[in-house]
């Protein structure tokens, strides 16, 4: 059984079609990333999968159940890290983790979770005294304390400094290594590339491309870009096969000290995909 199966998902707000027919399959144990600009329909889609928004059409199965009707037992098998929580709780980190852990049948130990998200030094600090990035890590702690089979992460690393982001990536890899299925949305292409087994790009309520970070949007097949300076001008060519061009340049005496040969980055592919939608 797949962890997530979605066919023809639709959602319309008053006057805007936020999601217009999404098909999606996420296998068990997979890390799947959803990319897309603001307003592409990422959060709406994820919230429907979490059971927090009603859909207007389509079929959705999450861990074998319809999130629109699934009960508390199903809910305790998923973990959710929401976007933009700004919890000014009067509770300490450890108290909050212990409290929410109590909602689950076999929660992780409080200290283990606090350690996993790198907040051991802030264990007994009130959540309201934490920085934005630290609070975000509390959100993550609350998402994983119940040992979820499936974890939803909505823009989890917004507000993290680079070091915290690397630590977070390690945490996600650890969870995936334990067999947790992970669906994350992100704005950061390096994050998707570093973590995701597969990813989908959403634009304007549709999936415009889907694949692995290496193959997304024809990236593997796309030609290399060759650039060099000639008589003070930058010249760029994108030949189907760069070998012949490079041999020609090398033999006809062109100054190649400025030569670059680049493959399209995930960001190039992404911007092309998004640009085509505009």
């Amino acid at each position: 059984m797949e962890a997530i199966e979605v066919t023809a998902l639709r959602k319309t707000y008053k006057d805007k079609e936020a999601v217009r027919g999404i098909d999606l399959t996420v296998a068990r144990g997979e890390i799947f990333a959803m990319l897309g600009p603001n307003g592409a329909g990422k959060t709406t889609s994820v919230e429907i999968l979490e059971g927090h928004r009603r859909r207007d059409g389509g079929d959705v199965r999450v861990l074998g159940e319809d999130p629109g009707t699934a009960g508390q037992a199903w809910r305790s098998r998923i973990g959710i890290v929401l976007q933009n929580t700004d919890d000014a709780a009067d509770l300490t980190v450890a108290e909050m983790v212990r409290h929410v852990g109590g909602f689950y049948p076999g929660p992780r130990a409080v200290d283990e979770v606090v350690e996993l998200v790198g907040l051991t030094a802030k264990r007994n600090a009130k959540i309201r005294t934490l920085s934005g990035g630290q609070r975000r890590r509390v959100d993550v702690a609350l998402g994983i304390v119940g040992r979820p089979e499936l974890l939803f992460l909505d823009e989890p690393t917004t507000g993290f400094d680079p070091e915290a982001r690397r630590q977070f990536w390690d945490l996600i890899r650890t969870l995936a290594g334990e067999g947790t299925t992970i669906l994350l949305t992100t704005h950061y292409l390096d994050e998707a590339e570093a973590l995701a087994d597969r990813l989908a790009v959403l634009a304007d309520g549709r999936i415009v491309a889907e694949g692995t970070p290496a193959t997304l949007g024809g990236r593997a097949a796309a030609g290399s870009k060759v650039s060099w300076q000639e008589n003070g001008h930058l010249r760029t060519e994108q030949p189907a096969d760069p070998s012949e061009l490079l041999r020609k340049l090398a033999t006809d005496g062109t100054d190649l000290r400025t030569l670059t040969v680049t493959r399209p980055t995930l960001e190039d592919i992404y911007l092309t995909l998004i640009g085509a939608q505009r």
Binding site: E50, H52, Q72, R75, S76, D86, V100, F103, D139, L142
Partner: peptide, 20 residues
């Protein structure tokens, strides 16, 4: 305040559920 801080949404997303 709990609504604006996201506390309601977060706890509603846990096995506590919204009616709970």
């Amino acid at each position: 305040y709990e609504r604006s801080y996201g506390v309601l949404k977060r706890l509603g997303a846990s096995p506590l559920t919204r009616p709970g």
